[in-house]
Design a binder for these strands. Structure first.
Lengths: 243, 243
DNA sequence: CGAGCCGTTGAGGGGATTCAAGCTCAGTGG
DNA sequence: CCACTGAGCTTGAATCCCCTCAACGGCTCG
């Protein structure tokens, strides 16, 4: 496979790791960024690029994990089956996040990881992570930091997104998404069914909440799957909802 | 401090690590259990025992973490302040769990860890964990496994305990507690205020649900702070609630 | 063009919250 | 010893929010 470095920030086609990594926009936030500079080409050579369309699974529950990813762009949701058989979405992850880390422990995945938007990711072979981990303790430390971030995010989701009135939950969800897409004006807007499984609220209720936010100017140009978000209005609405 | 090994399974008074550890009932599940046998006395010497009464904090949010604990007995809750100022309980942990791991990363704690019942724990100095981690990669692997367990538990809490009707939430909470106190017939019963912050349900509603479960035989001899739990009835009620 | 899915909106009912009262119990002080 | 207090638990009644059921419109796709 020939190395033709693409200067585009987001090559749409899968690219060999080495060339892509050096221009990657999340490289500074990625796991391997703690490696010394001379190791980067080596590391990059073991990374493969992967693209996913919205709705594609990065990996599935109970799959023996051979997939650890760094998200470059897009949003990924984690879903698991509730004991009643219903899907529950328990967390979101965005650019810079490391996901599927349980593969490093040779454990099966506990959740599905599904692309909510088009997702560009780097697939890291567990063996490579382990190899570098042995030579560079700093990388192990970085790995643990990632685990802690995930735990934190999960705690915040449980503390904020699943509590309070339907209106407050939708606002908190928008807040989460806004942080994952900090630089975009149009943000991903989950379907009402997705909101059901994220917020524990029936789709009709989610729809009513979205409609209300549109009337109040927090959301505009609401299309299936995306909307324009007024972040200032969102902040005001959140402050008021927290009263 | 002289070493008088107590043969009681649960010495009430703080004891120096070495003697206590060798008879500790959770030793086989503890972090240091992956160390080779000849290292155990060394490890044990660095561990100090800590007792907490119900309501005591093992550590507090925003504290620069110098506290990593292995829980020996009892139940610990993790609480954080919601953006509205309300307390939110986002997870429980029980015997064998490693908590406060973020201290290893020199990060401040993100949550309060509070004893729900009397708690016996082993305090591990971060430096010791790091030291053994450098010599014994297996311990780092075990450490990551702990992180993953915590993440899993957090996901399950978000997926199960905070969803569905008030009745279902209380049942799921009892299920969590029953698993943390698998060998006890009387289990810890949180106060209605604690249930509020765990389940996102008002105390009156929690009280009504508890009363209903008592009438239906799932709970009996309900006293402030504890109750007798009919595990079979709980399983039936859960299966029915999940319909 | 009909079928099916998703989103929206309305009407009605049910479960949770709110408000309120009464209870037990531990602690306090007369 | 006992009234007094305050906190937590329970129960009742009224209100409100969310769920349920339903109808309709837009859209994609066969």
């Amino acid at each position: 496979m020939l190395m033709k470095a693409s200067l585009l920030p987001l090559p749409a086609e899968p690219s060999a790791g080495a060339a892509g990594c050096l221009v990657c926009q999340v490289r500074s936030r990625a796991l391997f960024s703690v490696l010394p500079a001379e190791q980067l080409p080596d590391a990059a050579a073991r990374v493969t690029h992967a693209s996913f369309a919205a709705g594609d699974a990065l990996y599935l529950e109970a799959q023996a994990g051979r997939s650890v990813f760094t998200i470059r762009t897009g949003i990924v949701r984690f879903e698991r089956a509730g004991s009643d058989g219903e899907r529950r979405i328990v967390r979101l992850a965005g650019p810079g996040a490391l996901i599927g880390q349980e593969a490093l422990l040779r454990q099966p995945h506990a959740e599905n990881a599904v692309a909510c938007t088009p997702v560009e990711a780097c697939r890291l072979p567990p063996a490579a992570v382990e190899g570098f981990g042995q030579s560079y303790p700093a990388m192990l430390r970085e790995l643990m930091r990632r685990w802690q971030s995930a735990l934190d995010a999960s705690g915040e989701w449980a503390a904020e997104v699943t509590r309070g009135s339907a209106r407050r939950r939708v606002l908190k969800l928008l807040d989460q998404i806004a942080r994952l897409q900090a630089d975009e004006e149009r943000v991903w807007l989950p379907s009402r069914l997705e909101m059901q499984d994220m917020l524990g609220v029936v789709p009709e209720t989610a729809s009513r909440a979205v409609s209300a936010l549109r009337r109040q100017g927090v959301l505009a140009e609401v299309l299936p799957g995306s909307a324009r978000l007024d972040r200032a209005a969102l902040a005001r609405a959140l402050a008021q909802a927290d009263g």
